[in-house]
Design a binder for these strands. Structure first.
Lengths: 262, 262
DNA sequence: CGAGCGCTTGAGCTGATTCAACAGACGTGG
DNA sequence: CCACGTCTGTTGAATCAGCTCAAGCGCTCG
């Protein structure tokens, strides 16, 4: 069941052979609940297991001295938030549960074994860490350059598209059990300002967030408002046309652009 | 020479055996100059080579429709900014030269060959991509939560420490050939505000930036101002004491914290 | 019923932006 | 050699997005 879940996530960003799936099916781990607000990993630790979300919502975050914190990313069911610990000596942020969640802890040894056996799985797990890095880059852009209403729209689009990819949506809605304060920590805003911004968004009738659930009524409008382009999620079913839309740059490109090698 | 440079960088974040170094020495690539402001890679491309900085300063960046751009990270000499392309289908941001630079383009095939041969090198290259991700997480925190003067101090600390690790400093200074506008694009500020903030920092006499060179006079004070903790750079010579300093959290930790597995 | 948590609202403040003008350094071409 | 344009840095004044502080409201749960 743990291996199947991991397989589902990996197949969102690449191809799995039946041998890959069979190898994953053998993966062992322990299942445990995590209470709301509790941390599974804290900065500085050297875990010997990776985490897989089975249910709920996790986040990577770090506290600052002044009591504020920054959330670096959210993790939905099927996501594997601490794959990075496979090849880095210690983790540099905390992994916490936004709400009561269920996770699987998979010993590194299990993953090393399966990666040794199936190089394609190693490539995909590496890719998964790269996709997570791409998400953080997008958050950097979002938080640094977008005004609050666009930033919130962008976050909603991301969570919704990721939920769709993980088959966690029903109709136009998905769970998003984050308080306004949690959203504020993700966006680098204050809870008060998130509150006012959310009201503005509600008035547009593009989107709503209530009782821990996100209702997306007008995705295209919301995506336009948030300048959201899903290509950074590297989902397999994303069309290439969309991907290349944002590539154009006002600067000159390298002289003799094509055929760089030889 | 290309392989040696890569070895130097990898040995900053891990251990290389002599066999690893020997394998790297064989790595082939082509050297080419890149003019200031030109892009080596543009978003959407599917490169078949990785990039290694030999001289100069590169950055990952992406343009927005309104003509502003966000820089995601800088890359000094010895850094390998596009290792991610090894395992991801297309790059999602541009790789540009901040100033006239020299890069080596290493065909993916070369790197796959050496990683197959030396699993330790694969682990370290994977780790390198993870360290780059950690840097972006830090930038997210910095740009989202720090006021301008702290953010600028933080960026200066990072560039200086990374330059030290790459043995690119002489005394208390290193090259940082970025214009105030470039810094603004990294910090998510306007060039005007960077200008005023830089003047404030100069007045403290902790740091100066002139003629494309960064002079760090009072590193400790600057680090305190920028809330800079180098642990996220995962440099080998960083002491563990420092690493764990920031781990404490005002929240409760998971029940029965120790011994998660079995 | 009371406590706590999350959401809402108001008023005043401030850090950063915008727009605009100008100054110095540099390179280029006449 | 000077004249010119471009690029980078600097300064001022007005404006605004988002913050702070503070109070109040409505749930839910013990």
């Amino acid at each position: 069941m743990i291996g199947e879940t991991l397989a589902e996530r990996l197949s969102c960003i690449g191809e799995l052979s039946s041998a890959d799936r069979a190898a994953l099916a053998d993966v062992k781990g322990t299942v445990r609940p995590v209470a709301k607000g509790c941390d599974i990993l804290t900065a500085g630790e050297e875990p010997e297991f990776a985490v897989l979300v089975l249910r709920g919502l996790l986040c990577h975050h770090r506290w600052k001295r002044d009591g504020t914190r920054q959330i670096h990313s959210f993790y939905l069911a099927k996501d594997a938030p601490s794959l990075e610990s496979l090849h880095i000596d210690y983790v540099d942020s905390n992994l916490g549960a936004v709400v009561q969640s269920t996770v699987a802890l998979i010993p590194h040894a299990e993953l090393f074994r399966v990666m040794e056996q199936r190089p394609n799985l190693r490539a995909l797990m590496w890719r998964e860490t790269l996709v997570q890095a791409a998400i953080v880059r997008e958050w950097l852009t979002r938080n640094s350059t977008l005004p609050a209403h666009s930033a919130l729209a962008h976050l909603f689009c991301e969570m919704f598209v990721r939920a769709q990819a993980a088959e966690l949506t029903t109709g136009g809605s998905c769970d998003l059990p984050a308080t306004q304060e949690t959203l504020a920590h993700a966006l680098g805003l204050t809870a008060v300002h998130v509150n006012r911004t959310l009201q503005m968004l509600r008035e547009t009738e593009m989107v709503d967030l209530k009782n821990g659930r996100l209702y997306v009524h007008e995705f295209d409008q919301l995506a336009a408002l948030g300048e959201f382009d899903p290509s950074y999620l590297h989902l397999r079913r994303c069309s290439k046309a969309v991907r290349h839309a944002a590539a154009t740059s006002p600067r000159q490109t390298i002289a003799g652009g094509a055929g760089l090698i030889q």
